[in-house]
Simulated assay, not measured.
Amino acid sequence: MTSLDVYAGARPVRTTAVADGATEASFPAPAAGSAIRLEGFSGNDLAAALQLIV
Rank of each mutant, 00 (worst) to 15 (best):
M1N: 08
M1Q: 07
T2M: 04
T2I: 04
S3V: 03
S3D: 03
S3H: 02
S3W: 01
L4C: 11
L4G: 05
L4E: 02
L4S: 00
L4K: 03
L4P: 05
D5E: 12
D5L: 02
D5W: 01
V6T: 04
V6M: 04
V6I: 12
V6K: 00
V6L: 05
V6Q: 03
Y7R: 03
Y7H: 02
Y7D: 02
Y7A: 00
Y7P: 02
A8Y: 10
A8D: 06
A8E: 07
A8L: 14
G9S: 03
G9V: 05
G9F: 09
G9W: 09
A10I: 12
R11I: 08
P12L: 15
P12M: 14
P12D: 08
P12S: 12
V13M: 12
R14A: 13
R14L: 03
R14N: 10
R14Y: 01
T15P: 05
T15V: 08
T15W: 00
T15S: 12
T16C: 12
T16P: 10
A17F: 06
V18Y: 07
V18L: 15
D20T: 07
D20C: 06
G21K: 11
G21Y: 09
G21R: 14
A22V: 11
A22D: 09
A22I: 07
A22G: 05
T23W: 02
T23K: 02
E24R: 12
A25L: 08
A25N: 08
A25P: 13
F27C: 06
P28E: 04
A29W: 10
A29Y: 09
P30T: 08
P30N: 00
A31T: 15
G33C: 04
G33T: 02
S34L: 07
S34I: 05
A35C: 07
A35S: 11
A35W: 15
I36E: 07
I36S: 03
R37A: 02
R37Y: 01
L38R: 02
L38K: 03
L38W: 12
G40C: 10
G40R: 02
G40K: 00
S42V: 13
S42K: 14
S42E: 15
S42W: 15
G43S: 12
G43T: 15
G43W: 15
N44P: 14
N44T: 15
N44M: 10
N44H: 13
N44I: 10
D45H: 10
D45I: 11
D45G: 08
L46D: 07
A47T: 00
A47K: 05
A47N: 04
A47L: 08
A48H: 00
A48Y: 02
A48E: 01
A49K: 00
A49P: 06
L50S: 01
Q51S: 07
Q51M: 02
Q51L: 01
L52K: 11
L52D: 05
I53L: 11
I53H: 11
I53T: 14
I53F: 13
I53E: 10
I53C: 07
V54T: 12
V54G: 09
